[in-house]
């Protein structure tokens, strides 16, 4: 199940613009790694390069290697669709499929991959919704549209949808930034539970959140305007928030940044 990720000397470009400069970083399995840093420093871009979502944007490309348990996901023979099936993603804004019911949203990944067995789909639906702590709230209205849920419920629905395909890694791009504190707490608890089964990478602007949920924290920063973003340092979360080795990190987490 959970696999480790090794990012080796990754450079990311949008057309001619060099967005991220030479990131090297390891994410151990069954752990939560948080990416923090100011806006535009490339943390989301790095995250999106981990499941080859980056290249969906026209003109975008990635150089370097991203290894999933030693296997390069950018090798020429690798199908990006397979990569994304193995490395799931949850987005900043909850994005359930508006034409589908709650049940169909959860099993969308399996159903569109051709799984027809109704019993199996129902099983996966219940397991995933339980996994996302949403089952009790929606079990009586699985046939209702997913768009009718509250923002926090929609985000947990999206997490259920992502874990339904049983990925090895779960990427989360600011999953709580559109949610109220109660829903945020629910998602953070969920992340701590999901850590048992998945390798999780989460981008967040909320440093308390990074401190609460993550085992390892990576701080990204910009060298200057128009310069590519880069990884300043990565270490145990406790160390980053108590005694970082770089001055820039300390300035950022203590609010003296910029």
């Amino acid at each position: 199940m959970a696999k480790r990720i090794d990012i080796k000397d990754v450079n990311i470009y949008y057309g001619k613009f060099h967005a991220v400069d030479s990131v090297t970083l390891s994410v151990p399995p069954r752990s939560v790694t948080a990416f923090i840093g100011p806006s535009g420093c490339g943390k989301s871009t790095v995250l999106r390069s981990l499941n080859r979502m980056h290249e969906v944007t026209p003109g975008a490309r990635v150089e370097g290697r991203v290894l999933l348990d030693g296997e390069d996901i950018y090798a020429p023979s690798v199908d990006p669709v397979e990569v994304r099936r193995t490395i799931g993603m949850v987005f900043q804004r909850p994005n359930p499929f508006p034409t589908m019911s709650i049940r169909d949203n959860v099993v969308a990944g399996l159903k569109l991959a051709g799984v027809r067995n109704r019993k199996k789909l129902d099983e996966v639906c219940e397991r995933s919704l339980r996994g996302a702590n949403l089952w009790e709230e929606v079990k009586d209205r699985l046939d209702r549209p997913g768009g009718g849920l509250s923002g926090g419920q929609q985000q947990r629905l999206c997490i259920a949808r992502a874990i339904a395909v049983q990925p090895d890694v779960l990427l989360m791009d600011e999953p709580c930034s559109a949610l109220d504190p109660i829903s945020t707490l629910a998602i953070e608890d969920l992340i701590t539970e999901l850590k048992q089964d998945f390798t999780i990478v989460i981008v967040t602007h909320n440093m308390q959140q990074a401190a609460r949920v993550s085992d390892q924290t990576a701080f990204f920063n910009l060298a200057g305007v128009g310069q590519p973003g880069r990884l300043v340092e990565v270490d145990d979360t406790e160390k980053i928030f108590s005694n970082p080795s770089q001055k820039a990190t300390e300035d950022y987490i203590s609010g003296r940044f910029g």
């Binding site: 979502m53 994304r84 099936r85 987005f91 499929f97 969308a108 990944g109 569109l112 395909v165």
Partner: peptide
């Protein structure tokens, strides 16, 4: 975002277009 949500589930592009 809907297209990306679908891609992130490992659904190929053509199926994303047809089904989502």
């Amino acid at each position: 975002e809907l297209r990306e949500a679908s891609y992130a589930l490992g659904i190929p592009k053509w199926k994303t277009i047809v089904k989502v």
